[in-house]
Design a protein around this nucleic acid. Structure first.
Lengths: 339, 339
DNA sequence: GTGAAAGCGCTAACAA
DNA sequence: TTGTTAGCGCTTTCAC
């Protein structure tokens, strides 16, 4: 492995100059810069990140903490963050909390403290006060994605608005008997996510002068599976069943679509169904939904961090809290059956 | 941030002793070790990874290179690897090749060369010769998961065997008109994955004295979407249609299940369908499939690396090439219709 | 614009 | 078993 010393010798300059020329910090004449660049290229020199980190105190690495990996939303956020980090020459180190409490603890008490990262992105995390403390104690730039953390800047869509959008769409189509399929309020650890979406539904209904009876509210836990079961309950009894279902996520909506089909119903002729997310499967199932853009959220989180890490280099001002969302109308919604 | 010097002072020993006590390298008396541990605990000391890396040449970090993130298989492998790495006190840095050629190049020419990782895991990568060269040029332990790389140890299931398993299952049920739905042979970049699975099917058929006509071979590209279309073609014509479909992946199989339903067929009464993977959705669709265990593959990859990185510490011998697979029989397969 | 030199915080000989 | 010492390879003052 060629070292900075080799490059210096090859280019006929001091190590300090090589460092300056390659990093862009400090003034170097154009000619020297070129000579150094050529020497580095020739020798295949790439600065050792540990030496550089130790000397400068910057690691060019960002940590991302997630509660799961194998869900569409999380991997999309990670992908977006990674892409943007790479553009800035940063690496991404992954901390997955998982379900094991011991490993969870060690993330906060060991891994994040090793001075390996310059900043941290926390994705949709539900943390104890102490864990939030640990994050703040790092004294490093910190940004949350997808869920508010005590005293942490967070990128989050307005869940109430989002649920209102799909509900409003159905109301506009003429539906009056609309049911809501969402996360349970009992274990709404996820930052009031369940509550916000449900409130968005209820408010949009009220705004239209409508009211959903209690039995039209069904709980499921964001999987196709539980969405399927809940929807079967909802649609099983032909008398007084809803003509539309607002689901709190695409997975639950897909479950509802499949449940309707299994009951011999045709979507959207017999029942309209909406989701939230624009999940990768949403298009296949022709689901009307509200897209949020997790990849963009990951990218944006990185941009915010870069603003802290390299002040004055931002290319453009960044949007604040209201992240973009978009109602995507597909084939799963239509006017209610005329009976 | 407390440094090793602070701990040394607090514990009344030299820095070297602190290092030895905390890292476990070198002999330290039990009493000293305890004192050092207490001092470290008290001061909240965690060794700086860059300083430690620079001095020791070891980073306690492993790089994982993947072509995508947002697919079930990859995130599962990553999750498994991450878990196991954490057990060993290692971090995981993520390199996603993505579709942009420039970023792809910089992974091999910049990022991996920064001495940030002790070893590399390459997941289902299709690399150019030059890229493989770059990996070898790192002179670091290297292991592939899910696809052979020139001169790299690789963990891979036997795709031919796997396809043979599902085919054999259908044959045993009495099916004779069996179709194959798999990746196209034209762009079989994925290490002959498409070819191997198809061969597994063909051989199992031959072994049973059966033969599938050319029109029973249909190409799709591992998505629900394309599986759906291909299956519709296969099942659309009631005359001479197959009684069973062997799909080369669960996604394609799920597409086939949905296509059959849309054609008014009942699975498995009218047609049996099998997949490969045991994807997270397989259980919901009642899919008979062959499970491979990507999480376990990620874990195993790490174990192999740890054997190189810390020789003589392995807890148990590791299995070699034949990774475990298991035929999972669910409701999507049954005896063929009696006509 | 460039060089000399100190030092980032740790580990690993080597001595004792 | 423990301490002393010399780096690891870079960055960053401070001179010039």
């Amino acid at each position: 492995m060629a070292s900075i010393k080799d490059v210096a010798r090859e280019a006929g300059v001091s190590e300090a100059t090589v460092s300056r020329a390659l990093s862009g910090n400090g003034h170097v004449s154009a000619a020297t810069r070129r000579r150094v660049a050529e020497a580095a290229q020739m020798l295949g020199y790439v600065a050792s990140s540990s030496a550089s980190s130790l000397a400068s105190g910057r690691t060019r690495n960002v940590g991302i903490v997630v509660p799961f990996l194998d869900r569409w939303y999380f991997s999309a956020v990670i992908e977006g963050a990674q892409q943007e980090l790479m553009r800035h020459g940063y690496d991404l180190t992954l901390y997955n909390l998982g379900q094991d409490p011991a490993s969870r603890r060690s993330v906060f008490e060991q891994f994040l403290l090793r001075q390996r990262v310059d900043a941290v992105i926390a994705v949709a995390l539900e943390l104890t006060d102490q864990e939030v403390q640990s994050l703040h104690a790092l004294h490093k730039p910190l940004v949350g994605v997808g869920g508010p953390l005590e005293g942490v800047r967070t990128l989050s869509i307005d869940n109430q608005v989002v649920a209102g959008l799909t509900t409003g769409h159905l109301v506009a189509l003429g539906h009056t008997r609309i049911a809501y399929l969402g996360g349970s309020l009992e274990d709404d650890g996820a930052f009031g996510l369940n509550l916000s979406r449900r409130l968005g539904f209820t408010h949009a209904m009220e705004a239209a002068g409508l009211h959903a009876p209690t039995r039209y509210y069904r709980a499921a836990d964001y999987t196709i599976d539980t969405g399927y079961s809940a929807a079967k309950q909802l649609l099983g009894d032909p008398a007084g069943r809803p003509t539309a279902i607002v689901a709190g996520s695409d997975e639950m909506a897909i479950g509802a679509v499949l449940a309707a089909r299994d009951l011999g119903m045709v979507v959207p002729r017999d029942v309209s169904i909406t989701g939230i997310d624009d999940h990768e499967l949403a298009a296949f199932f022709g689901l009307t939904t509200v897209a949020q853009f997790p990849r963009g959220q990951g990218r944006l989180a990185v941009r915010l961090l870069m603003e802290d890490l390299h002040p004055g280099e931002q290319e453009d001002e960044l949007p604040g809290h209201g992240l973009p969302v978009e109602l995507i109308v597909r084939g799963s919604t239509a006017r209610p059956p005329q009976d």
